[in-house]
Write a protein that binds this DNA or RNA. Sequence first.
DNA 1: AAGATTTAGTTAGCATAGCTAACTATATTC
DNA 2: GAATATAGTTAGCTATGCTAACTAAATCTT
Lengths: 150, 150
Amino acid sequence: MTDVKQKSEVSPELLEAADKLHSAAIHLLRRLRVRDRESGIGPAQLSALSVLVFGGPRSLSELADAEQVRPPTMSRIVSGLTAAGLVKRQSTEDGRRVRLVATAKGKKILWEGRKRRVESLAKALAALGETERGRLGELAELLPEIVRKI
Amino acid sequence: MTDVKQKSEVSPELLEAADKLHSAAIHLLRRLRVRDRESGIGPAQLSALSVLVFGGPRSLSELADAEQVRPPTMSRIVSGLTAAGLVKRQSTEDGRRVRLVATAKGKKILWEGRKRRVESLAKALAALGETERGRLGELAELLPEIVRKI
DNA sequence: AAGATTTAGTTAGCATAGCTAACTATATTC
DNA sequence: GAATATAGTTAGCTATGCTAACTAAATCTT
């Protein structure tokens, strides 16, 4: 099934897979955005907050790196989050650095959003066959693996 | 990590899977966006163009539906595409409707973008083990299936 | 057939989010 | 102590989401 291609010639299967992944990612986010909008917080803010809640406090540059955006972009995202009382800027020994920490309110909002996403996804999964559902776990592992390597 | 009480009947595995899919979708698009920007066309325009190229001509409302976006949003996306000479608006018997068709230039740009995405993805896949690579096909099939049902 | 309603698409105005360039403030290096 | 490097912000552009309100064309009602 998988013959190892050295280079140049990309198999039609791979081409197909790349397009499906790309398209699926776009539409997955569009659907989930509907639910996420209930939190009253944009997708970029939600994703950044998620890093702080699940990954712990970090500096602005580190957060920008984690989110694959430039510092000015993250600066504005964080401004929105602090204005909404979801994140706090703390000063550090290094006067240039800030330490970004999710507030209790931020954690609450994030967990609620996570719950909504799971509800939406659970509905989708209920409509899948048993076999497909069984695969979900390993696929959920595989996808971040792929992303990490792009 | 923070242990939060949850009343949800959803299994932790499902919760985990939902978050991984969500996060992976966000970061997949962020990485691919770097390559897609080489086309000089935004992600929404690229995705809409893709529908027209692979799915054939259709009306603005149909395209908006396919892209899970409101008509005014799609109207502006199409304006950008026509201004760039990638899509043509054709009139129909029904004077209200427009028929949107990808131009030759539009098709060319899209195929080039597809090629760039595959290059990026191929590099990621090359770093995966054989087993994981074998699962890619399943993932590419299952993911759109899930998305369709959200 | 005339008027009312529905449908397709656009325009206007607002918000979020991406970028680069240029700036400020603090640390570090020479 | 001066020059340089680093962290973050501000300013200004573009793209993309939305709702509300509009125009034009088709359809339905009477």
